[in-house]
Simulated assay, not measured.
Amino acid sequence: MMSTKRQQKTVQSCDIVKRKKLNIDSKRKFYTHFEDLSNEIIYEIFDYLDIYHIYEAFSNLNKRFDNFLVSSTFPIKINISSMSKTNFQYYYTNILIPNKHRITSICLSNLFIVDFICSSPRIILTFIQLERLILDNIQLKYIQNIPNHLISLFNLHSLTISLIDKIQNKNNFYYSIFRLSTLKYCKLSFESYIRAKPLLISSNEYSSIEHLIIHNESTLDEFRIVLSYLPQLRRLYWNKLFEILRISTSFDRSYFDANRWERLISSYMPYLRIFDIQHNDNSYDQMTCNNLNNLFISSFWLKHQWFFTHQCYSRGYGKQINFYSTNPY
């Protein structure tokens, strides 16, 4: 009798173990391990990571990932913001140089690394597949000759430059950028001296830029001249300033010249849909304020359905005009 009970308990225990094992096996079927992912999905994941972190995580992990890092052709993005000199030397020697033919994007903001790479612009020329270059918060001395060298990078279509010091000659700076024949996107952030020499109007040289962002105080004359270099421009953002044009300016009365705006838009922005302007001037007389009622009322403005108004008021010890769009859309 006791033997029979022991046998029953043994059978029940075995059944419980089997059921638990089956449950575990069935749950495992719903688990996906990273190494089970296809190459295509892993490439997609790597696209969000800097190559330095990819090497740190997957180097010498197994043969498959070693092949990814050494023999694969997936594009590499470089984003160096903070890194010690020792780590960068290893990074440069063991990662950047062996993979320079696969690098498509570089973002530099570390002063030491910018100094290392930009002090000799020819280093950038080794990245023959480079498509995007971001130079963030750098000194002017490091980019004096870089644009001239970038001409040889035929895949470069996106350029972002942010300077921490003032430009003496915007003429040369703009011209060096506009000469990059494959550029489609360009973002420039810089300060310049007020009396800087303006760019000469283009007669036979044009840029391929389609999307331009400029953070810099500029005159209307400079704005008009820059546009003469950009026949393919589709999107423009100028100075906290094509189908869309938004401008916020101060202290330059040439922005009140409606006839000049009409010629500028007709010649260089024939597809403009939205014209949104706000202009402030803190020095005016009553005649100037009254004359604003007769501006921007020609058939050109009525045809586009762009309307404007203004306010004239005293502020502190001075007087101010606030001129702005009422129906920019």
Rank of each mutant, 00 (worst) to 15 (best):
I103T: 03
K77C: 02
P75S: 13
E56V: 07
L22M: 14
L111A: 12
F68A: 01
Y91D: 01
N110R: 03
P147C: 02
K100F: 09
I138Q: 06
C118Y: 10
H53P: 00
S109D: 15
Y31W: 05
K63A: 10
N62L: 05
I41R: 00
C118M: 14
F65L: 04
K77M: 00
I151V: 14
F112N: 02
I128W: 09
L140W: 15
F112D: 04
H101R: 06
I124Y: 10
S59R: 07
H101L: 05
F68T: 08
V70D: 07
I97K: 10
C107V: 11
R102I: 02
I113L: 03
E56C: 11
K18V: 12
I146R: 01
R28L: 15
S84P: 02
C107S: 14
I143D: 12
C118V: 05
P147K: 07
S109A: 11
F68D: 04
T126E: 12
R19Q: 15
K85Q: 08
Y142H: 13
D136E: 13
D115T: 05
S59E: 13
Q89C: 09
Q139A: 04
R19M: 12
P121V: 05
C107R: 14
S59K: 09
S105R: 06
I113K: 07
N148E: 08
D15C: 06
I143K: 15
L69M: 13
R132P: 00
Y43V: 12
N137E: 11
L135V: 14
E40T: 10
K77L: 00
S84C: 08
L69Y: 08
R102F: 05
F30P: 01
N23T: 15
S38E: 14
E44P: 02
I103E: 06
L61G: 08
Q89M: 10
R122C: 01
D25H: 06
E44Q: 10
L111W: 11
S120I: 11
C107H: 13
Y31G: 00
Y31C: 03
P98M: 05
R19P: 03
N148W: 09
A57M: 13
L69G: 07
